[in-house]
């Protein structure tokens, strides 16, 4: 019994998230029977591919006790920059690599400022957000279409799923899933991952234990930059265009997904897998609103905000109880 109790305490927020996802989806299925179709379920992954990718990066940052508000700006910047480069007839693979490099470079720069110059993470990354969005508008003030063959191939090729009939996903959809598995393994089973958790719990003691705090911190922000650049590529593939106004306030969706996924904002507590369910809950709410048709889109923002608040409340209850035990 005590083992089960301990398991429930450790994984409480994650289990709550999975349960809530199932309940929300079942309510949706009852209200709109069309939601029971498997394709609608997999559409969650297709529509939220870029959100999933930035949320994974965000989850790592939050686990470390930091925050990265720049992700949505990076998506906009990547989409515009890649569209502009593709217009110059540069090879798409080169463009993608350049974008990823840019993401890592910006993330690394923010990490360095946060760690070495001791500026608060949210200030630096908020400025990163405004900087990236501003730069996107500097490159081009209106939206640019992408007509590259390779991008079109990536965007339009369907991959049929096994075990399901007439159900398919697209190539970019898989990027998020693959990334999730990789980051989960890194966070769970490597020295690097343990260091991230340790810094999140207590940076001072992690430093005193001789852990490479500086290297890890900068690496985590670089990974988040990489993730947002990847999300930007996925985003521009799915819309086949680039614009500085894309993905507005998506950082909030990402933070909400991470929090709903059971990761504590204070750092050191949580699970990367939970983030997937956070994203799915987010997507399910949007899907229900779309099926309803009469409710307007700004209810999504309000709904996600309220849900985030509730989950922060649940978390603090859990951790208070844990502390008392």
């Amino acid at each position: 019994m005590p083992k089960i109790k301990k398991f429930l305490f450790i994984n409480g927020p994650l289990l709550a998230t999975i349960l809530i996802f199932i309940i929300v989806y079942m309510i949706g299925g009852q209200l709109y029977p069309a939601m029971k179709k498997p394709q609608v379920f997999f559409n969650l992954f297709i529509n939220n591919a870029s959100l999933l990718i930035i949320s994974i990066g965000m989850a790592l940052v939050v686990l470390m006790g930091g925050i990265d508000l720049s992700v949505s700006g990076m998506i906009a910047l990547t989409s515009v920059a890649s569209a502009a480069l593709l217009q110059l007839n540069i090879h798409p693979v080169v463009v993608m690599l350049l974008m990823l490099l840019m993401g890592v470079a910006l993330g690394c720069a923010m990490g360095c400022i946060i760690h070495y110059l001791k500026v608060e993470a949210f200030v630096v990354t908020l400025m990163g957000l405004f900087f990236a969005r501003g730069m996107a508008y500097v490159i081009n003030r209106s939206s640019i279409t992408i007509s590259d063959e390779f991008y079109r191939y990536l965007a339009l090729t369907k991959i049929p799923l096994p075990f399901f009939e007439n159900v398919s996903v697209y190539i970019p959809t898989l990027a998020g899933i693959v990334l999730l598995i990789i980051v989960f393994i890194i966070a769970r089973f490597t020295f690097f991952g343990r260091t991230v958790y340790a810094i999140g719990k207590n940076e001072q003691s992690a430093l005193l234990m001789g852990m490479p705090v500086a290297r890890t911190k900068i690496a985590v922000y670089s990974i988040s930059g990489f993730c947002s650049a990847l999300a930007g590529i996925v985003f521009s593939i799915s819309l086949l265009s680039g614009f500085g106004g894309y993905a507005k306030s998506m950082e909030m969706d990402a933070i909400a997904s991470v929090v709903i996924g059971g990761t504590a904002l204070t750092g050191g507590q949580g699970n990367v897998i939970g983030t997937l369910f956070g994203v799915l809950i987010n997507g399910t709410i949007v899907t229900i609103l779309q099926f309803n048709g009469t409710l307007t889109s700004w209810w999504t923002r309000i709904g996600v905000g309220v849900l985030t608040l509730i989950f922060i409340g649940i978390q603090s209850l859990f951790y208070l109880k844990k502390k008392r035990d």
Partner: peptide
Amino acid sequence: VPANALTAAKAVLVL
């Protein structure tokens, strides 16, 4: 300087 691009300059200025 266009308004949207100005945010980039301001962000650098804050830092």
